[in-house]
Each structure stands twice: as C-alpha cells, then as structure tokens.
Design a protein around this nucleic acid. Structure first.
Lengths: 348, 348
DNA sequence: ATGAAAGCGCTAACAC
DNA sequence: GTGTTAGCGCTTTCAT
C-alpha cells in the first residue's frame, strides 16, 4: 500500500507537503502545478491513508463502536442497522464488536478492546444475567475518565449507575399487554417468560402491577432458560397444559415465545384468539405474516437508537463531566389477529 | 490511558525493558524483582496496549474483518455469529463492517477502509445486483497484491474471478426442491422469486433444469424487488391468483417469501399442503414453529463458514501467490409439514 | 511556497 | 540485566 512518503519520493517533494496537499487539495498555499502532480500520483498509486497511523497521530479515529452480545434477534438486527446509519450520518465510521455472552468480565474485556482500538465513543448493549449493581462497577472508571459511552437498552439493574443510558420502559410494556387484554374483557391472564434477567423481571413486574390494579390473580408460567427461543414457548405450553387451559389470555416475554406457544396451542386444538388470546413482545417482522397475525408490544427502535446517538454525540462534544442521565422510551401496542374479546360462553 | 512510557517512569526503568517484561512476563532476562514491580504497576495503572500503535509497529493487527451489506436476514445473523466464533478460536479478533448496500463502489470503499484499518484478512459477503463479471474487477488488485481474502457465499457471477471463494450450490438448491416435489407426485410446480440477482438466477436455473429433466413446463411467478421480504411473497400470490390456482406445488426463493405466500394462500382458502405444497429456502428458525411447519432447503451454515475460515487462514499463512479456488457447498433438504403427496382428486 | 523535525505508543534489533 | 535507537505512517508546528 502506497504511503505519503512514497508519493513524496515519486513527485520529488517533502512528505509534509504531500500531506498538506492531500489534506487540503484546494488550498493555494502550494503551487497549482505541485498540487496537480501530487493528486495525480496519489490516485495513480491508489493511496489510502493508513487509519492506524492516522488514529495514533490524531488521538482519535472518527469511529463509534457498538458492543453487544451476539445479534440476539431480529430486533437486535434492526438496532444494528439503524445505529450504523445514524453514526454514518454524523460522519463517523461504525464498528461492531460482538462480545462473548454472559459474564461481566467479558463485557469489560470487550469495552477495553474497543477503547484500545481508539474508538471515540461506545454504544454498549449487553444482556447481563447478573442483576446486582456490582455488575455496573466497571462503568465508574469510564465515568471518571470521562470516556464517552451510552448504555443502550440493556436489561440490567441501573440503580447506582452514574452514566448516560437509554432503555425501553419494559415495565410499561408488561403493563400495556395486560391493559389491552383487560379492555377486551379478559381476566384470567397468564404471563410466560424465563425466570432470569432484569429484562424479564421488568416485564413481569409490569404484568404483576397491572394485574393487581385490576384485582386479578397472577398466573405465571416459567420457562427454563433466558434464551428467547421459539422452543421455549412451545415447551412452556406443553409442560403446563392444565394451567394454560385455565387461561383466556397469555402475555408472552417475546414474539418468539409467542410463536412457539401458538404452535403448541394449535397442536392442542386450542384456537387463537378464539379460546385464548396471545400477546407477544418485540414486533418481529414475522408477526405480521403468521396466522393468526400477532398482537405485540413494539419497541420504537428508531426512537431508541436516535436518542442513544444524540446522547452519545452530546457527550463526545462536551468537555465537562458527564452527569447521570437515564432516558426511558415508551413502547407501542400493535393490535393484530391474535387477540380478541373474551368469549362469553367460555367455561369459568 | 496508561502507556508503556508512563509505567517506565513510575518504575524508574527504560520503556523497552517494560515492554519486554510485559510481552514476556516469565522470561528470566530481567531480575524477578524488576519484573514484579513492572507487572504490579501495569495492573495498578490499568495498562492496556494501544492497539493502533501496536498494529502500526507490527504491521499486523491480528484481526479478521467481515464485510457484508447489512445483516440481511436470520441466515446472515447465524453466519455472523459462527464466523466470529471460528475467527476467535484461531486467536484472532473479529471486526464486522457493514457496507452500504448496492453498488460496486460501496464494496470497494468498504474493502479499502478495512485494509486501511489493518485487517490481516477479509471475509467478503455482498449481494451484487450487477451480475456481470466487471463487478469483480476490483478483486484483481487484491489478488495481485496478495492480500488475503475469501469471497463468501456471494450471489455474484464468478466467471473470471481469480481468488478464493466459497459458495452455496444454489442451482442444486433449486433442483432439490423440484425433485422433492416430483417424488411426492407433483407435476404442476411453480417457482416464485424476484427477477434480479445472480442469487436468484441460480435457484431459478436449478428449478428450470429439474423441471425440464422431468418433462415439465415452467411456471414462474415474478415478484418486484430483490428483497426477500415477507410482503413480496404475500403480494406475489395475491397478484397471481389464477396462476397459483393451477399449481399443486410452489417452490420459493426464500423462507420469508414462503411465509408470506402461505399467509396469502390461507386468506384465499387454499390449504397447505392439502391443495398446494410449499417449499422454502434458508431454514429460518421460524419455519419449524409456524403452522404448517415449513419444508425447506437449508444452507449448511457451519460448513460454509468453517470452509471459508479454513481457506482464509491457509491464504494468510502461505507466502505464495493465491491460485483461484472455488468451493461449492451442497444444501440439505429438510422435510416438514408444508409439503405432502399431491391429492389424487385434484382438478387437472 | 516548501521542508525539517518531533511526536503519537509500541516494537525490535542491538549495544553496553 | 538493562538501555539506546530507529522506525511504523501520519500529523503538526515552526522555520526557511
């Protein structure tokens, strides 16, 4: 790969002149003739500045990093793409780092590596199985050092977390599902989800709060893993048939759980929404095309990402210490075919 | 962030000693006492080597880049994750670069940027709408310069492409769907897909070859866009109802198209697989859970990725010029509920 | 209008 | 055992 030096040798001038001309091709500081020759050579040799050297010299890379564990789902995919686009719109490059899932140590390692690579700022989105606030301790260092980052829609306990952070209001999400079902006349409403994760805890809390405010008893179905895979929805129903038969409606932790559950319900000869209404969560594309199409609680992905990026650049451009800021985005209800009014004749 | 120099100052020795000790903590070249002090300081100051500087100095970054346009689908997600894992297994970091979709210029820009960032090798996976071989010209430069890269499952015309390349045998995929349906007794078999893209052309060619070898006439349904979105499957059926009613089986460009098509068929009161059998392509997770579950042609993702990574590292470790190599991976048929024997009584 | 020189942080060959 | 020195390629200040 051609370097500034090589161009300088070809043209027969010093490398700093070449640099100046390439950085500012129109500036009349150098004679038009020299400028032309340099530009020609650069094109001819296919010159591309070495970004490692540039970053080292400038102390910045014009790159924003995104640290996430896998691309866990369709929703994760949409976030990734939107984030990429918005960061590009700001004239920054975008770099995605996939951390190993699970432990806080992996999260720390991922963040450290991205900093070591000279990222000018980080969007961090990781699902932590550890709920306690000790899982946030490593952020204190970032805060103290004034390193720009925003925690993004992360299912973690945020008490005591002192940085910038944008999340979806999952308590509200859990509540909205119940409110929707209550309006349709349902009272025996179940909730199916995994038992771990702050993520889950919040939705389940919203469910519980809404049920209590309507004077209804809780009916939870727990599935084994924190993974939101189809199979767990299927198994959840199949292994709790009796409890399911008591219900007229089921709120699900995710669209995938809902799809698996609906598959199981069909196999059991229980009609959706006729005998049981089902609400999902995530607004996966597929929900629109399945039969019945899926009523769901949708995270406003664009708004989430937009807010995150705004916050990050506010942080990057300001020189003062970051204050603690937590922005919660409200979800939206999308009504489709999988929910309907409770059947009058349904057995108690 | 702490530097080698700062540690050296604290400890009171030269920076090269610090470097040597940190690079080789157990080597007895330095006195145990000094080694201890250096290691302590490094931990205390939270030293992490600056990867830009390291990469610049060493002329390599121990990082493999993945260049792709968006993460177009569930299958893309799986590839991304598997690629990441295999690259990590080799002791390399993994960096994902999402290029703007569409033009060859964007592809070139993406590749150039990754090289400028010091990637030691690249896996390139882009869908090109341009079918001609001129879309491959920029790879010649990479070949000549001996830069290590592997073209990965890219729907493009590979005549004249002189590098390493791993693809799915999509002609075979198209053929397999037809063979499966013929074995079930179907003869009026349609194919639905977009009209652009090498990707499409191959599947369609497999369909055509298989149909001809059985002496059957082609029945193609074309959908507008190259996007493999659900909606197009739905629209494709709804806008070609007459043609659809002639069929006893339908082979689809993708699982998403299949899902949309099945939704439409249901709305039209056409039962699947009773009145019409449907085969998808991709093996999206969702295919297992929908009703009817989806018979599909599955790309062996792990094998594709494994082969790609093997090839890339072979290239990285060898000093000789790359030969041209093209490895085609065979897809697999997964039979589920959406296909069944043709109904005897079906109207001609 | 052009160039010399120092520096970013890490690496590596070699000297003491 | 430890230090010196030059260099990776780009940037930036200051001199000519």
């Amino acid at each position: 790969m051609a370097t500034v030096n090589e161009i300088a040798q070809e043209v027969g001038i010093s490398k700093s002149s070449v640099y100046q001309i390439l950085a500012n091709p129109e500036h009349p500081r150098y004679s038009p003739a020299t400028r032309q020759r340099v530009k020609k050579q650069a094109v001819k040799m296919g010159y591309k500045p070495n970004l490692l050297a540039k970053g080292l010299a400038e102390g910045k890379t014009n790159t924003i990093g995104f640290v996430a564990c896998s691309v866990s789902c369709e929703a994760g995919r949409k976030k990734l793409v939107k984030l990429h686009d918005l960061v590009n719109d700001r004239g920054y490059s975008f770099s995605f780092f996939m951390m190993k899932a699970g432990s806080v140590e992996n999260e720390i390692a991922a963040i450290d590596e991205m900093r070591a690579r000279g990222m000018d700022g980080l969007v961090i989105s990781t699902q932590m199985s550890q709920v306690g606030k000790e899982a946030n301790r490593h952020f204190f260092r970032l805060n103290e050092q004034g390193y720009p980052y925003v925690l993004f829609d992360s299912g973690r306990n945020l008490s005591d977390f002192g940085g910038y952070c944008v999340t979806l209001d999952r308590v509200e999400a859990g509540r909205m599902a119940v409110e929707h079902l209550c309006e349709l006349g349902h009272r025996r409403i179940g909730f199916i989800g995994p038992q771990t994760g702050e993520d889950y805890r919040q939705k389940e809390q919203g469910y519980a709060l809404a049920m209590q405010s309507h004077g209804l008893g809780l009916r939870k179905i727990t599935i084994p893993d924190m993974s939101a895979d189809y199979k767990f929805g299927y198994q959840g129903v199949m292994e709790n048939i009796e409890a399911i038969r008591e219900l007229t409606a089921l709120s699900c932790y995710s669209d995938k759980i809902a799809v698996g559950a609906i598959r199981a319900l069909k196999e059991l000869g229980i009609s959706v929404p006729g005998q049981i209404a089902v609400v999902g969560f995530d607004n996966d594309d597929m929900g629109e095309m399945m039969t019945p199409s899926l009523t769901t609680i949708a995270p406003p992905v664009d708004q989430l990402v937009q807010t995150t990026v705004d916050l990050l650049f506010e942080r990057i451009q300001s020189y003062n210490r970051p204050m603690s800021r937590h922005i919660e985005i409200k979800p939206e209800l999308i009504i489709r075919e999988s929910t309907g009014p409770v059947r009058p004749g349904k057995k108690l």
